[in-house]
Amino acid sequence: MDRLRNANPFSKRETHSRESIITYKVLTILTWLLSVAVTVYYVFFQPETIVVDPKHHHEPQPIWYQNRTWQTGFTLNKIITSLYWLGLFLFQIAYIGHLFSSNADHVNAACAVGSHFIVNNLLHVGWVLLFSRGHFVWSEVLLILNFFNLSSLYFRHNTYPRAIHTPVVSGPLAWTFVAIYWNGAIIVHSPDSLVARIFANVFVWSFLAYGAFFIIIYKDYTMGFNLSVLSAALGVGQFLHHAIAFQWIFAFTIMAVLFILTLIIAVPAWTGRDIPFARSADAERAPLLADD
Rank of each mutant, 00 (worst) to 15 (best):
H116E: 06
H116A: 04
F117Q: 12
I118D: 00
V119W: 01
V119N: 00
N120G: 11
N121E: 07
N121C: 14
L122R: 13
L123C: 11
L123E: 06
L123Y: 05
H124L: 15
H124A: 11
H124Y: 10
V125T: 13
G126D: 13
G126A: 10
V128E: 02
V128A: 02
V128D: 01
L129N: 04
L130M: 08
L130Q: 09
L130G: 05
F131C: 06
R133E: 14
G134P: 02
G134D: 01
V137I: 12
V137N: 05
V137C: 02
V137H: 07
W138E: 08
W138C: 01
E140N: 15
L142I: 10
L142Q: 02
L142V: 14
L143A: 08
I144T: 11
I144G: 03
I144H: 00
L145E: 07
L145N: 08
N146D: 06
F147I: 09
F147D: 04
F148S: 07
N149C: 03
N149F: 09
N149G: 12
N149H: 06
N149D: 08
L150V: 12
S151M: 09
S151C: 06
S152P: 00
S152W: 15
L153M: 13
L153G: 07
L153I: 03
Y154P: 01
Y154F: 09
Y154C: 03
Y154L: 07
Y154I: 03
F155N: 01
R156Q: 09
R156E: 14
R156L: 12
H157D: 14
N158P: 03
Y160W: 06
Y160S: 11
P161C: 11
P161H: 09
R162Q: 13
R162T: 10
A163F: 08
A163V: 07
A163C: 13
I164S: 00
H165L: 05
H165W: 10
P167W: 02
V168E: 04
V168N: 05
V169C: 07
S170A: 12
S170G: 04
S170M: 05
G171S: 10
G171R: 05
L173G: 07
L173F: 08
A174E: 03
A174Y: 01
W175V: 05
W175T: 08
T176E: 01
T176A: 13
F177K: 14
V178F: 13
A179F: 03
A179H: 01
I180R: 00
I180E: 03
N183A: 01
N183T: 10
G184S: 05
A185K: 01
A185W: 13
I186C: 05
I186L: 10
I187L: 15
I187A: 00
I187K: 02
H189Y: 12
H189P: 00
P191D: 06
D192P: 01
D192R: 12
S193L: 10
L194C: 02
V195E: 15
V195A: 14
A196N: 11
A196H: 14
A196E: 09
R197T: 15
R197W: 08
R197C: 11
R197G: 10
I198N: 09
I198K: 14
F199W: 10
F199Y: 07
A200W: 04
A200Y: 07
N201F: 01
N201T: 15
N201P: 08
V202Q: 03
F203V: 14
V204G: 10
V204R: 04
V204P: 00
W205N: 15
S206P: 00
S206W: 15
S206Q: 15
S206C: 11
F207R: 00
F207D: 06
F207L: 15
F207Y: 10
F207S: 12
L208G: 01
